[in-house]
């Protein structure tokens, strides 16, 4: 069903607004969960359960002084947060939210691309420029260290990400995210489960590294390099980077759900309880994303940060080889067993 450009535009706008709203409340949820995990209370003073805290934070960010470092590269300094948020928001567009036509007769996605999987990888790989250039343009040694770490980290872990995705591509035989969900990679053959399980683990680990979350948050390690690439940013530009980070987390969570956990499809037993409920759009994707978002927060509360050399060794010596092994195993199963 070809939809008019206006509808696509409105859906994209709605998605962007939804993602940014979700970002605001994700910060609150994260702080509350972290507080509970660390035996403290967390923000609970601003409104009931602290529900007005994101609004207070947003107002504070807007009214803070916007500082431009004297020796910064001004053009790139302003460009960097814009790049970050643009590519973060555009990456989500290809992720399908439900079966065709299920959203009040409309398709619950912004674009249905034949190369949707590659599109998400491409958009997220462009997002690194924001962090990278922001750290460089600030003309500060801490910011530069943060951006160098970020570039090295993202390049290294993209390999693990790409190889884990290869397993999915070989099984599904398509790059279209909606078709990958419809194929249902786990239902193809039990022989493929070992490869898939390993690929799932390596994919989640590389995904966390790609979005710079603990234990891979070296680009902004506050105990070593102040705040890394964020050191010189303040006010709304800082908030844009935060937005991009959380939107990237949402994208990573949605991408993991779509590739490995059946994406927008609900569990089959739900159809027995409420007929047709497994086909509800958006609901199941959001539920699965919530699991991963909780995992990200849980890991942040649990694990210490890796050292730089540990990060590189883990990425190149272990993750890369294990993901490659899973891809080879899956290829061998498809070629010789099935």
């Amino acid at each position: 069903m070809a939809e008019s450009l206006l509808i696509v535009f409105l859906k994209a706008l709605l998605l962007a607004v939804a993602l940014l709203g979700a970002f605001a409340y994700m910060t609150l949820i994260e702080r509350r969960i972290l507080g509970r995990m660390q035996h403290r209370i967390g923000p609970n003073r601003t409104g009931p359960f602290g529900l007005l805290q994101p609004i207070a934070d947003a107002l504070k960010s807007i009214f803070k002084q916007d500082i431009m470092p004297a020796r910064a590269d001004k053009f790139v300094f302003v460009l960097a947060p814009a790049i970050s948020i643009t590519f973060a928001l555009s990456a989500f567009g290809a992720i399908p939210g439900g079966p065709a036509g299920s959203l009040f007769g409309l398709d619950p996605w912004v674009v249905d691309l034949d190369i949707g999987l590659l599109y998400v990888l491409a958009a997220t790989s462009m997002g690194v420029y924001g962090i990278f250039l922001g750290g460089w343009a600030a003309n500060s040694k801490y910011a530069l260290l943060g951006s160098l770490r970020s570039a090295a980290q993202i390049i290294s872990y993209e390999l693990g990400l790409g190889l884990s995705v290869l397993t999915i591509i070989m099984i599904a035989g398509t790059l279209n995210l909606r078709e990958i969900v419809e194929v249902g990679v786990w239902s193809v053959s039990p022989w493929l489960w070992p490869g898939l399980a390993v690929a799932f683990v390596t994919f989640v680990i590389s995904g966390i590294a790609e979005v710079n979350r603990t234990p891979f948050d070296l680009p902004e390690a506050e105990q070593e390099i102040v705040a890394g690439y964020l050191t010189e940013y303040s006010s709304i530009k800082w908030a844009l980077f935060q937005m991009a980070e959380y939107v990237n987390m949402f994208t990573a969570a949605a991408f993991m759900s779509t590739l490995f956990l059946g994406g927008y499809k609900g569990p089959a037993f739900m159809n027995a309880l409420i007929p047709g409920s497994a086909d509800w759009p958006i609901v199941w994707l959001v539920a699965k994303m919530a699991i991963f978002m909780f995992l990200f927060i849980w890991l942040r509360a649990t694990l210490p940060r890796l050292r730089y050399d540990q990060l590189m060794r883990f990425g190149w010596i272990y993750l890369f080889e294990v993901a490659l092994g899973a891809a080879l195993l899956t290829g061998a199963v498809i070629a010789f067993v099935l």
Binding site: L118, F132, S147, I155
Partner: peptide, 26 residues
């Protein structure tokens, strides 16, 4: 040529140019 476009972005803009910039900054 959608595939070519995606690969162009991933390989050249996303990987090779990041390495270029990495070296320039380092």
């Amino acid at each position: 040529a959608h595939f070519l476009a995606a690969v162009q972005v991933i390989v050249y803009a996303g990987a090779i140019m990041v390495l270029f910039l990495f070296v320039l900054m380092l």
